[in-house]
Design a protein around this nucleic acid. Structure first.
Ligand code: SF4
Ligand code: SF4
Lengths: 160, 160
DNA sequence: TCAATCTCCGACTAAAATACTCTTGACTAA
DNA sequence: TTAGTCAAGAGTATTTTAGTCGGAGATTGA
């Protein structure tokens, strides 16, 4: 119930990977394509593709469709992409209950009129949101154990 | 995705109700039965019954099956029942990701071996858990809700 | 006694969300 | 031209959630 979806998980995984690749010492704005990320993490390719498309549509990453050299690049600095943004891009706006984003009357929840727990729950929700909004991709970058070694990529095409 | 289930919602609703009934000025340990709660909140009776049964099995409430006068009573003081306890009673142990409660190897998530985001996500999860564990039924009792202090990982910004 | 009323439990169905796939198309670089 | 890429949408399969049903056991009050 209080769980990230796979898609959200994949999104974070991909963003972290892209951040690592881009923030390499060379600061080379290398484009990474879907296939590379999918293979690196053993994620179903087509599904990851959809996730990245969604992220691109929400301006979190930029798509460079340049044929065989196409791919994606972070649209902002890693510190400027919060976890909450990612989550909201993938799933809709996030809310703990059915009554979170109210549209006037109680169209969502039948017992809203006589509900005493709504206000407290909304506060919990706010707290969680603050938490997620306070963390960015940067905070997720390699911590202590960089398990993925980025330079072990097979060079597709020639590297200049 | 980051949403309470109906059952969890119902559980909190019921517990709040029971708490209010019991902590009335009379302090009469009145037993309240499923039907009463269900009708009061317009919840499907049978479903609520299951929820309460689950809560009872987890020692959060006591069942008095005394024929026509039977019903449920809180097993502890409202302040001693945390939201996290309730949620874990209803759903299983809560975890943000598939890899949260590990059983040795990576039986849950295929990419766990080369996953860099696991540790950060576990931290987020801990924060959320602490938040939920810091609130009890008592904090939900009346409308004038207390402030939730979010303790985030890093000292950043104010909530208010 | 006995019927009403309650909890308890497990199996069951239905609906909805998730996870994943397939197909088609447009673009671009070599 | 051709292979490799993103884009978009429809389609399917699986899992989770929501809600239902029916019977068993217990207790009370008439
Ligand atoms: S029961 Fe209360 S808190 Fe839950 S969805 Fe309905 S109005 Fe919101
Ligand atoms: S991808 Fe990483 S964080 Fe997500 S479930 Fe797998 S191991 Fe855990």
């Amino acid at each position: 119930m209080l769980k990230f979806s796979k898609k959200a998980d994949y999104a974070l995984l991909a963003l972290q990977y892209m951040a690592v690749v881009q923030s390499g010492v060379d600061a080379d704005p290398r484009v990474v394509n879907t296939k590379e990320i999918a293979e690196e993490h053993h994620i179903p390719l087509e599904l990851l593709a959809k996730v990245l498309q969604t992220l691109a549509r929400h301006q979190l990453i930029e798509s460079h469709h340049n044929g065989p050299k196409g791919g994606y690049v972070l649209a902002h600095a890693p510190g400027d992409i919060t976890i909450a943004q990612v989550l909201e891009a993938i799933e809709g706006p996030l809310g703990l209950t059915d009554c979170s984003h109210e549209k006037g009357d109680h169209s969502q929840c039948e017992q809203m009129s006589r509900c005493n727990i709504r206000t407290p729950l909304l506060k919990i929700q706010d707290s969680i949101f603050q938490l997620l909004n306070g963390m960015s991709i940067e905070d997720i970058l390699v911590e202590e154990t960089p398990l993925i070694i980025v330079e072990s990529l097979k060079p597709q095409g020639v590297i200049s």
